[in-house]
Structure formats: structure tokens, C-alpha cells
């Protein structure tokens, strides 16, 4: 069972954007998809040690700000080189305007 950690308020993230969330020495990216849903992934690109929080969200893709590699942040799937390794994803739930990330 994941431990649900409060990450942010829903209105902390604009639609089609993301923010950085740090917890217990690890860093994550929390996404607000254009359809209104929220998602969470590991914060750093799997290609180089670059945080995705400065990247560009286009639909359900996150583009790394350094080399333009892309992931589908819903599944973590690497979609465009130079990224080859998938991104780790985490469960998310929204309750009363708060976004929680599920960590094990």
C-alpha cells in the first residue's frame, strides 16, 4: 500500500504544466494534464541528470529542458530520443483540492 503524501494544491499547477515536488531526499514532478487529471513521475530525466520541472508539457508529453527528449508522463514511456529509459511513475489522488502522491 502506498503512503499518500500531500504534494500541492490543485491550483498550484496551471493546466498543461508541471511543478517540482521534493520529499524525503527525493524529487518528483507533478503534472496537471489538459483533461484536468493529475500525474506524478520521478523528477529527473533518465538521460541526463536534469530536472523536468523546467520542461514543456504538450498534451500528455513532457519534454526535457536540456535535450528535448520526451516522455508520456501518464505511463513514463520514453517517446523521443535521446531518452531511451522510461520514467518512473507514481500513483496520484486528489481530495478536497489537494494532490497526493503515493510513495512506497
Amino acid at each position: 500500500m502506498p503512503q499518500w503524501i500531500r504534494a500541492c494544491a490543485t491550483d498550484d499547477i496551471n493546466p498543461e504544466d508541471l511543478i517540482r515536488f521534493d520529499h524525503d531526499g527525493d524529487t518528483y514532478a507533478i503534472y496537471h494534464a489538459p483533461d484536468g487529471r493529475f500525474y506524478a513521475t520521478a523528477g529527473r530525466c533518465t538521460h541526463e541528470d536534469v530536472h523536468l520541472c523546467d520542461g514543456l508539457v504538450m498534451g500528455h508529453l513532457i519534454e526535457c529542458p536540456k535535450h528535448n527528449g520526451q516522455f508520456d508522463y501518464r505511463t513514463g514511456e520514453a517517446k523521443r530520443s535521446p531518452v531511451c529509459v522510461n520514467l518512473k511513475t507514481f500513483p496520484v489522488k486528489v481530495e478536497a483540492g489537494t494532490v497526493f502522491i503515493g510513495l512506497t
Partner: peptide
Amino acid sequence: RWSHARHHT
């Protein structure tokens, strides 16, 4: 494509 990624890194 890869050499240019390195150029940016």
C-alpha cells in the same frame, strides 16, 4: 543526434 546532445550537455 547523439553528438549534438553531448554538445548541449
